[in-house]
Design a protein around this nucleic acid. Structure first.
Lengths: 222, 222
DNA sequence: CGCATATTCTATTGAACGTTGGAATATCAG
DNA sequence: CTGATATTCCAACGTTCAATAGAATATGCG
């Protein structure tokens, strides 16, 4: 009977290692970002607003837990998720947290929810809309992430250059913007900008990695 | 632009709280057990082989993270999972850990895998087998957990009293045993015992909570 | 080879967490 | 009310981990 205890202690001890790797705000943010595709250390450091030195240490912990893998290219080291399953784990954690912690709902509500919540579209709806060409679909993430994978039919319109592209968009057709994921603010800003310029605009509730994880087709390149 | 950083720090900080609650071997074990149904503190303490005092502290942490809820009955306090989603999160963590950490595969392999792996049955297969009455289905968990919910058509045969029930089982029909989940050893012991007594016996790869989570019907009562 | 850039390693400090012992609270039975 | 059981609270100790600073390594370029 004691072998059973030993087994359980060993086993759940290993699970604990993995849990510890997830128990860090910066690390969760990194994993969320890596859902977009591989990134070098310095880009990640800038994205999460943390010294490179520090970011590297977090990445070390994630690599030790086998949640990320690396690839070297010249002096740069690119990190990527070790597995699609990892992002699903992060999303599961976010979903439980969002559902059960009132504080999170408050935080999100203050930032994400406009009067109409910017009329979020689910990915399934979006697929229908795109297939029937009923909407203009904008990918408002940085160009690099667009190139690494985007929804077929989407136009790359990074938030910074969106204003310049407005003139070229058909005025009459509704616009849907998507970005990195459920807690990414890019599409939100985009919708605000579009509406200020007279467009009918909505955003998706989820982002590119969720589209891919749901098994929908992904286009690559510029 | 700084409001965005503040938002992310707040948000992922909250996620971190939840991650921390998951970063404990004992706590993960508790959550796994609670997947069977509600349990009082002392039962949990015995199950995870940890002082009551200590177990209570862990439960406190879990309750603070809103992962569990309580119900009082006399001097006892019963704990239960706050949500089905919580168990799905734990399973997601286990799945990633199992897939990515070689140490876990080793640990599990040493204990769970017999020459034929005890011919694990998936839940989907099991459903077919049960519907056609092709097998005798045994629930080898403690009687209380059987009463709280079991697979329709299953016979309660707690490991302790299984030996006494052997005589009543049809010799010619194959037996399938299931228990708590992928890392529960009860069904394994059961299959060993059954085979020693000349039965053809297999076990399920997953357990009762997974059956429920998959949306299959659940029977209650003795 | 020597310099520059990108990244990682080492050592230190301070905060957070698990554990343990002892006391306190809550409920029930008599 | 008293005793008994189940659970929780409180304080102290040791460990672990994130953050920070400084040094070291690796690659590319001239």
């Amino acid at each position: 009977m004691n072998r059973h205890r030993q087994f359980k202690t060993d086993l759940y001890g290993q699970f604990e290692h993995l849990g510890r790797a997830l128990a860090g705000a910066r690390r969760l943010e990194i994993l969320d970002l890596l859902g977009q595709g591989e990134m070098p250390v310095d880009a990640l450091a800038r994205a999460i607003d943390t010294p490179v030195k520090n970011t590297s240490a977090h990445l070390r912990a994630l690599r030790l837990a086998r949640l990320v893998e690396t690839r070297r290219e010249g002096t740069r080291v690119f990190y990527r998720l070790a597995d699609e399953e990892v992002l699903r784990l992060v999303r599961a954690l976010q979903r439980v947290a969002h559902g059960r912690l009132a504080d999170i709902r408050d935080t999100v509500h203050r930032h994400l929810d406009a009067p109409d919540g910017y009329a979020p579209v689910t990915l399934a709806e979006l697929q229908r809309l795109v297939r029937t060409e009923a909407v203009t679909l904008l990918d408002v993430r940085p160009a690099g992430e667009f190139a690494a994978g985007h929804i077929p039919g989407a136009i790359s319109a990074p938030l910074g250059s969106l204003r310049r592209q407005l003139a070229r968009l058909p005025k009459h057709r509704e616009v849907v913007a998507y970005c990195r994921g459920p807690y990414c603010l890019l599409s939100l800003e985009a919708v605000r900008l579009l509406r200020r310029h007279g467009f009918r605009a909505r955003r998706t509730k989820e982002g590119m990695p969720d589209w891919r994880a749901a098994g929908f087709p992904v286009a690559r390149g510029a």
